[in-house]
């Protein structure tokens, strides 16, 4: 118990001066223009546009391919079943 009290007191003594000298941070909803953001925060627009168009193409081509394959599989299964029935 005594140890816990000492630990709490030590933490308080360390944190209090740190809180006093801490610089006021800008609020989370404060507007900062992208041009003023640090370089590592800025992504070239061309990369984002290329990623967006690339993603659309991959999804569309992938889905058409998957749908075509499923249709082909179903058609061959129907043909095999109908042949077995005859």
């Amino acid at each position: 118990m005594r140890f816990c009290r000492a630990l709490f007191l030590a933490a308080l003594l360390t944190a209090a001066p740190a809180a006093l000298v801490a610089q006021p941070q800008p609020s989370a909803d404060e507007f900062v223009p992208m041009e003023e953001a640090p370089p590592e925060e800025q992504i070239p627009a061309i990369n984002l546009v290329a990623a967006a168009y690339g993603f659309v193409w991959i999804v569309v081509v992938g889905y058409v391919w998957s749908l075509g394959r499923r249709l082909q599989k179903a058609e061959s299964e129907i043909a095999a079943l109908e042949q077995r029935r005859r």
Binding site: A37, L48, V49, A52, F55, V59
Partner: peptide, 19 residues
């Protein structure tokens, strides 16, 4: 399919437009 396109292209646009 169209939902994932919307939800991915939107943030790519927002990153530059809204930060």
């Amino acid at each position: 399919v169209f939902g994932i396109i919307t939800l991915v292209t939107g943030p790519l646009w927002a990153r530059k437009a809204w930060g």
